[in-house]
Computed example of a mutant assay.
Amino acid sequence: MSWHLHFLGTGAAHAVELGSSSAVLERDGKPMLLIDCGPDTLDRYYAAYAEPPRNVYITHTHMDHVGGLERLFTRVWFDEALRGKTRVFAHAALVPWLQTRVADYPGVLAEGGVNYWEAFRLVPCSRGFWLDGFWFDVFATRHHRPGTSFGLALHGSFAFTGDTRPIPEVLAQYADGEALIAHDCGLVGNPSHTGIDDIEREYDEGMRARLVLYHYGSKADGEALSARGYRIARAGQRVALVDPSPLRADAG
Results as ranks from 00 to 15, higher is better:
P106F: 10
P106M: 14
G107Y: 09
G107W: 09
G107E: 09
L109N: 07
L109A: 03
L109F: 08
L109T: 15
L109C: 11
A110G: 12
E111L: 12
E111H: 10
G112S: 08
G112T: 03
G113V: 10
V114T: 11
Y116R: 05
Y116H: 05
Y116E: 04
W117A: 00
W117F: 05
W117N: 04
E118A: 10
E118Y: 04
A119G: 14
A119E: 09
A119R: 07
F120M: 12
R121D: 15
R121T: 15
L122T: 08
L122A: 07
V123M: 13
P124Y: 05
P124N: 05
P124L: 09
C125M: 02
C125A: 14
S126L: 09
S126G: 11
S126A: 15
R127S: 13
G128M: 01
F129S: 01
F129C: 02
W130D: 12
L131N: 08
F134T: 00
F136S: 03
V138H: 01
V138E: 02
V138G: 02
F139S: 01
A140E: 15
A140Y: 01
T141I: 06
T141P: 09
T141A: 08
H144I: 08
R145T: 13
R145G: 00
S149E: 04
S149W: 03
S149H: 06
S149T: 10
L152R: 02
L152W: 01
A153N: 02
L154V: 02
L154T: 01
L154P: 01
H155I: 00
H155V: 00
H155Q: 10
G156P: 03
G156Y: 04
S157W: 01
S157G: 03
S157Q: 01
A159G: 02
A159L: 05
F160W: 14
T161D: 05
G162F: 05
G162Y: 02
D163M: 06
T164R: 06
T164D: 07
T164M: 06
R165F: 02
P166F: 05
I167Y: 04
I167K: 05
P168K: 12
P168C: 13
E169D: 15
E169A: 15
V170H: 07
V170T: 15
L171G: 12
L171P: 09
Y174W: 14
A175K: 01
D176T: 13
E178I: 00
E178V: 03
A179G: 04
A179F: 01
L180W: 00
L180K: 08
I181S: 04
I181A: 08
I181C: 10
I181H: 03
A182G: 10
A182I: 11
A182P: 10
A182V: 12
H183K: 12
H183T: 10
D184P: 08
C185W: 02
V188P: 00
G189Q: 02
G189W: 06
G189M: 06
N190Y: 11
N190R: 07
N190L: 09
S192F: 11
S192Y: 12
S192E: 11
H193V: 07
H193N: 14
H193M: 10
H193S: 14
T194D: 04
T194K: 04
T194R: 03
T194C: 11
T194Y: 03
G195Y: 06
I196G: 09
D197W: 00
D197K: 12
D197G: 10
D198W: 07
E200T: 14
R201N: 06
R201E: 15
E202M: 15
Y203K: 13
Y203T: 13
Y203A: 13
